[in-house]
């Protein structure tokens, strides 16, 4: 199989380029893209990419594979390869550090902006703040986000305004804390989001939903935030 990989080492290369490498795929096996990267690395040890858990939990190996963002470790070749060719690029829209490694600083900055921690100004109970099963259920489909950045880097609004638009990942987390019954800062959180960029730059094209490796739905969460803003503002 032909693997075409984006290569760029700012210390050596003046511009990025695509490197074509032939990789022998063991017959009868549907390898994951991360395994293919391992085979490429055996041929060219200078290739740089991030990886850690290799089972879709850590979110380190977000890549653009044949035009679609996803986690290399849980994406089988059968899901992405067409015409026996695999094109691998770094996540789009973020500065490239080297080869497939991107600088996630802007992405994390947006995550920090939504204050991703519980805020509660009532006196703390002796043991812990309790939550009913119904309230806990509201967090399903939100807390599972692993911050791999596949969604935000598939979003044109995030490409155009990465410093102003929070992005689907950050907004999914924003809603996770807005809807948490143990958080009392709902009004403050909402007023932080009521500007023309943070939430409202979302145009609902749902790229985020189609690429999320965990099957989450940031567009729905953004819709819920809009509704919350609407009910508090009318």
């Amino acid at each position: 199989m032909l693997v075409s990989i984006y290569r760029y080492n700012p210390d050596v290369d003046s511009v990025p380029y695509m490197q074509d490498i032939q990789v022998e795929i063991p017959a009868g096996k549907d390898l994951m893209v991360l395994d293919v990267l391992g085979l490429v690395k055996e041929q060219d040890a200078t290739l740089a990419y991030r990886r850690s858990c290799r089972e879709g939990v850590c979110g380190s190996d977000g890549l653009n594979m044949n035009g679609t963002n996803g986690l290399a470790c849980i994406t089988p070749l059968s899901a992405v390869v067409t015409n026996d060719k695999l094109v691998l690029r770094p996540l789009p829209g973020l500065p490239v550090v080297r080869d497939l490694v991107v600088d996630m600083a802007q992405f994390y900055k947006q995550y920090e902006k939504i204050k991703p921690y519980l805020q509660n100004d009532t006196p703390p109970p002796a043991i812990e703040r309790l939550q009913s099963p119904a309230d806990r259920e509201k967090l399903d489909g939100l807390y599972e986000c692993i911050l791999c950045a596949c969604c935000s880097t598939a979003c044109p609004s995030f490409w155009w305004n990465p410093d102003k638009f929070v992005g689907p990942s950050g907004l999914l987390q924003a809603y996770r804390f807005l809807v948490d019954s143990r958080d009392t800062y709902t009004e403050e959180r909402l007023s932080d989001l009521d500007d023309p960029f943070s939430v409202f730059r979302c145009r609902g094209i749902m790229n985020c939903v189609s690429v999320c490796p965990k099957g989450l739905n940031p567009t729905r969460a953004i819709g819920h935030i809009r509704n919350m803003l609407l009910s508090s503002g009318t």
């Binding site: 009521d194 500007d195 023309p196 960029f197 943070s198 409202f200 803003l229 503002g233």
Partner: peptide
């Protein structure tokens, strides 16, 4: 922008 508020513009 029209109103300084994202919600207002959106509505």
């Amino acid at each position: 922008n029209l109103s300084r508020s994202g919600l207002y513009d959106w509505m």
